[in-house]
């Protein structure tokens, strides 16, 4: 009895995915720059700067389809679990891994993310934890990326710099404006056993700011 609905839902998810990617391209003419690596089908955590709800959409759009199918954005459940449309997009289209951002619960908030890694998925992760609305390049990283990397040290960490999307749709605006965006993939690295938390987070953060400066330099040529 369930199969026609499941089938329809999957079809709808597939069509919605195509429309979202098309919309993202019309709005931003987004271009991937594989600066430090090539698109490869290995398990990776793509960690990126976060300024807009569109960030994971943009990374997802530029990933080649085969890799995209195995890559799941990590997102706060407070935003994506609200309302049926968001739930459909978050779950069925992007196959997000949801985490509880509100602290205070006793369970490990990263448990679902580690589970996804154990299933072989790659992740899109925003280590700042929240959208950056300041003039700083990055907010200080939360500890999440460190605990993930330490608990699954064979997963490649790829810094990803998203340029300009914060101007397309700043926090609080409803209408996006069309501007050209780029998504630049930096050099992958792995967690070196023994690295302590603050050192690791500083290295990861520096890898991303270095990449950002390279992107901005390359435009001027």
């Amino acid at each position: 009895m369930k199969w026609p609905m499941d089938w329809l839902k999957r079809l709808a998810a597939y069509a919605t995915a195509g429309m979202i990617a098309l919309f993202a391209r019309l709005l931003t003419a987004v271009r991937a720059i594989w600066y430090g690596t090539n698109p490869r089908e290995v398990q990776r955590i793509y960690y990126a700067n976060h300024a807009s709800h569109g960030d994971s959409v943009l990374i997802w759009t530029v990933l080649p389809p085969r890799i995209r199918d195995k890559t799941r954005p990590v997102a706060g459940s407070d935003y994506w679990e609200r309302g049926r449309l968001r739930q459909f997009i978050g779950r069925s289209v992007f196959n997000c891994v949801f985490i509880e951002r509100a602290s205070g619960s006793h369970s490990n908030p990263l448990a679902p993310v580690q589970e996804a890694l154990d299933d072989g998925a790659s992740l899109i992760f925003f280590p700042e934890g929240t959208r950056n609305t300041t003039d700083e390049m990055l907010l200080p990283f939360k500890s999440g990326l460190f605990y993930l990397a330490r608990s699954r040290p064979t997963v490649e960490l790829v810094p990803v710099w998203i340029e300009n999307l914060n101007r397309v749709m700043p926090k609080g605006e409803v209408v996006p404006i069309p501007l050209i965006c780029t998504v630049t993939f930096g050099t992958p690295f792995m967690y070196q056993p023994g690295t302590d938390k603050s050192r690791f987070l500083q290295q990861a953060s520096e890898a991303l700011t270095t990449l950002a400066n390279i992107v901005r330099e390359a435009d001027r040529g």
Binding site: A29, N164, P170, E173, V175, I177, P178, L179, I180
Partner: peptide, 18 residues
């Protein structure tokens, strides 16, 4: 879209650009 990408427009111009 290409032109505005290279301008100094700020967040205050969001509605003007839209």
């Amino acid at each position: 879209r290409e032109f505005v990408t290279l301008t100094n427009t700020k967040r205050a111009d969001h509605w003007a650009l839209a």
